[in-house]
Nucleic acid binder design. Sequence first.
DNA 1: TTATATTTTTAGGTAAATCTAAAAAAAAAT
DNA 2: ATTTTTTTTTAGATTTACCTAAAAATATAA
Lengths: 220, 220
Amino acid sequence: MQSFTEENYLKVIYHLAQKTTNVQTNAIAEQIQTKPASVTDMLKKLAEKELVDYVKYQGVTLTEKGKQAAVNIVRKHRLWEVFLVDKLNFKWDEVHDVAEELEHIKSVDLIERLDEFLGFPKSDPHGDPIPDKNGTFAKTQFIKLIELKIGESGTITGVSQHSSPFLKYLEKLGLTLGKQIQITDITDFDGSVEISVNDKQINISREVAKHILISNNGKI
Amino acid sequence: MQSFTEENYLKVIYHLAQKTTNVQTNAIAEQIQTKPASVTDMLKKLAEKELVDYVKYQGVTLTEKGKQAAVNIVRKHRLWEVFLVDKLNFKWDEVHDVAEELEHIKSVDLIERLDEFLGFPKSDPHGDPIPDKNGTFAKTQFIKLIELKIGESGTITGVSQHSSPFLKYLEKLGLTLGKQIQITDITDFDGSVEISVNDKQINISREVAKHILISNNGKI
DNA sequence: TTATATTTTTAGGTAAATCTAAAAAAAAAT
DNA sequence: ATTTTTTTTTAGATTTACCTAAAAATATAA
């Protein structure tokens, strides 16, 4: 079993490893809100426990054992987020911090029963996939909204930015999960995107469009 | 805000204070599974924070601030127990350890929403009262089953022993919360009690009868 | 009321996770 | 190919919660 702190390191390394193979000390420090020196200490400890492969000055990768542990935390985090939104009526921008605490509750039985209670959800309130109890993710097929061309359409199925202001903004625009959208225009000047959603035309910046994930896309 | 460990001390002191006014160092150490020397250290720290009144060699009492914090943990613990039993189908003997972890989740919003989701329950799966968000307990009127006389009856509304074997045993006998019972005989020899429940006659020891709490009692 | 037992505290130390400041290694720029 | 910058590590402290062993205070018994 890992400590609360070790679990946080594993989770952060897991997420950072989606971008780069070898995860850097500084990147971890930034995520965990601590100093690089503290990270080095912890990496040694995790390597000792065979949860990461660590070579001085070369960054880390998770071992199979470390990856399993990390995926399990991700699973718990996302299931709790579903609980908070579906059952306790939290908004999708309010759940992160609470789930951050709940994800460390240890009982295996609890999480299996929670999964069942929630109806074995496949994704969390932000569209992120929930691994099953063996750590397997369902294959998901997303493209970024920014990649759609004029006339193309699709369904909003995720976001790649979880900050509260961003999520609140999308909510205000009516750009929530499950919504059907169509690209009606792309401005030459700054690349901002005009889309039709809820029978209305709205305009979003390229930056926003980058972080909206679309599935079932195609021409109409 | 208190640390996880501080919260545990406050909770234990709160529970022990139901029996004696001045809570002793050794009693705390036993409950928390630690050494008396460690308890002394922590009592100094809690006194420093004005959560307890502590006089060397004289034991401790909670201050008003300390009591508030303790009652809040009790509230969270009991609400989570209701969640586990009512929503996740845990048995009443399985919930204690998990609730012990969940009670330390900090979000105030979470616990208010959970309370609402559960329908503002007034007692937990063992019949213990749940304080409201101001820390007020509803007045409860229990007597021990052992105090009933032959012919008297009542409703099982609580237990004063939470060990898993005890709870499992009661479950097997059908002595669960809400059940209507009547005393049909009390054995002279060892004081064991014959009761009628679910249209059957069963026999329990004095020791068991001491830990079953009855309300609405009276002659029939 | 003195002796004995129990309870509690002090003193000094350990382990986990953090820190700052300085040194070392690696990467980038001239 | 140096120099400069950035990244990472080491060394030595700090804080929290715990420990053991010994001393001190309190309670109990003779």
